[in-house]
Design a protein around this nucleic acid. Sequence first.
DNA 1: AAGTCTTGACAATGGGACTGTCAGGTTTCT
DNA 2: AGAAACCTGACAGTCCCATTGTCAAGACTT
Lengths: 114, 114
Amino acid sequence: MTFQGADRDPERPVYVISVAAGILSCHPRTLRIYEEEGLVCPARTPTNIRLYSENDVRRVMWIRHLTQNLGVNLAGVRILFELEERLGTRILERLYSEASSDADAERAPATVAK
Amino acid sequence: MTFQGADRDPERPVYVISVAAGILSCHPRTLRIYEEEGLVCPARTPTNIRLYSENDVRRVMWIRHLTQNLGVNLAGVRILFELEERLGTRILERLYSEASSDADAERAPATVAK
DNA sequence: AAGTCTTGACAATGGGACTGTCAGGTTTCT
DNA sequence: AGAAACCTGACAGTCCCATTGTCAAGACTT
């Protein structure tokens, strides 16, 4: 009687680090660094295993976009995330629409259709 | 009949590069790099000499603060400046009040009393 | 038991930021 | 006119960051 849709809560922790790294095509080491830097906070199992939610993965996609495509460093990413939280605005999406109009219009980290 | 205050227009180009570098305690080379990167656009005399206004200097103070104190790179600075222009908000000042509450509460680049 | 996870450490590579200098030429000041 | 400061472009050195990669010793899952 449980809808499958109910399990699709984007906040639900589902991906173990190796899986998340696979989705994001980056090294697990990199994800741990992002966490050490306070840029992403995956949930943990009662036995301390990292579990990334869909939102966590999207957040990392933003980090990757900002660093790889726009050349921003982690300190800059932190400021942007802080700013977004402080302003309560989706400044990053706005930012992406600007940047993508310039060059890379490949895969959008947030609004992805796939 | 000209008020002295009228000459204090913060947009008026007044500082030659060596003077600006002195005020900002950085290498003239650095200021030229910021200009190449499109982060600051000092006026030019009819004979091509750079002249920095008070606002130009303040802008560079922001660049210095973001890079030296917060560790943001020039790509991040560019994004923040773009964002501020797009949003039409003084997000940087808001940012500073957050950052200064943490550590350095020395001289504020924008809201300076002197 | 095998495989994957944990943390902590160490290292290598590549790139960015900044300073610094040199050269050849123009402008400004005294 | 001569000295000093400006211009552009190039090159180089130093330091730090981002990322990947590995190793070790231990815990968890199947």
